[in-house]
Design a protein around this nucleic acid. Sequence first.
DNA 1: GTGCGATACTACGTATAACGTAATACAATG
DNA 2: CATTGTATTACGTTATACGTAGTATCGCAC
Lengths: 95, 95
Amino acid sequence: MLDPTLLLLASLANGQKHGYAMMTDIEAFAGIRLGAGTLYGAITRAEQRGLIEPAGPAERRQPYRLTPAGRRHLQERLDLLDRVQRAAARRQGAS
Amino acid sequence: MLDPTLLLLASLANGQKHGYAMMTDIEAFAGIRLGAGTLYGAITRAEQRGLIEPAGPAERRQPYRLTPAGRRHLQERLDLLDRVQRAAARRQGAS
DNA sequence: GTGCGATACTACGTATAACGTAATACAATG
DNA sequence: CATTGTATTACGTTATACGTAGTATCGCAC
């Protein structure tokens, strides 16, 4: 539907969060409930790609924050999203 | 990256097109070049889901058009995209 | 009229990742 | 002290994104 990675990055744009907090946050701001498998999978991959990083050592829960690369990546995605959304909406409206 | 289905529906919002035309159109308006496998796979699935339908019989090339359901689906996606984009952009800007 | 690139689509195989679910554990609340 | 919410890991399945190769037709140049 919508790239979980984007949702995750968007959630962290706000400040650091741990996985479960991202889950509820994403549900609140996007209306999309990511399952555990989807979310934590995406987190692991985003960390491997250097888009997010652990913020402090893990206890019971592991907070993450955006890296500079992650913030750049998010911005690029958002710009693309905006371009596509506008182009498509123009067509929908007009046709 | 961005759901091929959305791109395909957006491309058809403009008027009916066959596969290859969608490919070049999508590249032009979104800057995303979908490979043959991705595009025609998405077309087949979109047709099965009743989002698009063949516009006339196939000769060498098969044009498709949006169904009403497809147009509705596109609109919903675009609304969602817009909401998420705005929410995330606000966070990026502020934070 | 032949060669060649663009058009148009089909048919693969592979890899990834989305998704659901179950399991675990601790924390808080009644 | 039992139940619900928090927080994460583990795992199997399935869908699908993606690339590539193959086929065929078309149009244009030479």
